[in-house]
């Protein structure tokens, strides 16, 4: 069978589908001062998956949407905020301000961060000492 670390080199999704892969990628991103990108990516996925049916679901969603907005998008010097297009940021800000909470409200921002990782940090990770030493 193919060892997991070889699968990690196939695509970003293969890497993010494996706990050890995520751990190593996070260590690398932290070194590069962009660990927040990965946390944001997972936070967006988690937000989309939140159940509406659970009690207080809507209140929890609103709280979470605000927390994600505050931590990753509001601070314009943050690594995530700097990678997201101004129009996308305005859209999210507007959703939060109008209390218009939609499961897909972070999708565009997540895509922008994912593209950034696919084109930039992920290829760098595959060439990094941290990955090569692991293999």
């Amino acid at each position: 069978p193919t060892p997991p670390y070889l699968k990690w080199a196939e695509s970003l999704h293969s890497l993010l589908d494996d706990q050890d892969g995520i751990h190593l990628f996070r260590t690398f991103l932290k070194q590069e001062d962009c660990g927040d990108m990965l946390d944001f990516w997972f936070a967006c996925s988690g937000f989309r998956k939140l159940e509406t049916s659970e009690s207080q679901g809507e209140e929890k969603k609103l709280k979470l949407a605000k927390a994600i907005y505050k931590k990753y998008i509001l601070d314009s010097n943050g690594i995530v905020s700097r990678q997201i297009k101004p129009a996308t940021k305005s859209f999210i800000k507007d959703c939060v301000a109008r209390l218009h909470i939609d499961p897909a409200m972070f999708d565009q921002a997540q895509t922008e961060i994912q593209t950034m990782m696919e084109e930039n940090t992920y290829p760098l990770f595959l060439k990094s000492d941290i990955y090569l030493e692991y293999t």
């Binding site: 993010l16 589908d17 494996d18 706990q19 995520i22 946390d39 997972f42 936070a43 967006c44 996925s45 988690g46 937000f47 998956k49 939140l50 929890k60 709280k63 979470l64 605000k66 927390a67 994600i68 505050k70 931590k71």
Partner: peptide
């Protein structure tokens, strides 16, 4: 503030793949 962080952490963990 703590509970906001907890909520965020819980959300991030929920999106991670489960241990195989």
């Amino acid at each position: 503030i703590d509970s906001e962080d907890d909520l965020l952490q819980e959300c991030i963990s929920s999106a991670m793949p489960k241990k195989k």
